[in-house]
Amino acid sequence: MLDAYTLQTGTGFWDPVVWIVVFLVAFLIALAIWLLGEKEYPRDTQAVKPFLSGNVEPEKADVHMRAGNLYWGFTEAMKGYYSRLVPLHTGVLNDYVLWFLGVMALVFVIVGVAA
C-alpha cells in the first residue's frame, strides 16, 4: 500500500510515511510520560527562580552563550587548516580574477594532457 511513497534509490529505499508514523508514535509515548508528571507547583515563589548556589542571578544578557564561543574547540583543533584557508579569502578583486583564470589554465592542461 505504501509502495507509492517509497523512494527507490537503486540499491536501497526510503519511506518517509512510515518514518513519520513511527515518529508520531514515539511522540505520543513521550507525551504520555510527560502527562504523568506533577501538574501543580507553586508559581510565585522561589521555586521558579534559578538556584545558583545562593549567588545573585546575573543579567540575562550576560548568561547568553554568544555565537563566537561556540565551536571554539573545533576551530582550535583545526587551526592548521583554518590558518591556511581563511587568508586565501583576501577580498582583493585581483585575486578573485587570478583564481578564476588559474583554475581555467589548470583545466586546460588536464584536458589537453588527457586528449
Binding site: 543579567e59 540575562k60 544578557a61 548568561v63 547568553h64 552563550m65 554568544r66 555565537a67 561556540l70
Partner: peptide, 10 residues
C-alpha cells in the same frame, strides 16, 4: 542556538 535560544535579551 545563537539566534533563537537563550533568555529574551533586553
Amino acid at each position: 542556538h545563537s539566534i533563537f535560544m537563550g533568555p529574551r535579551l533586553p
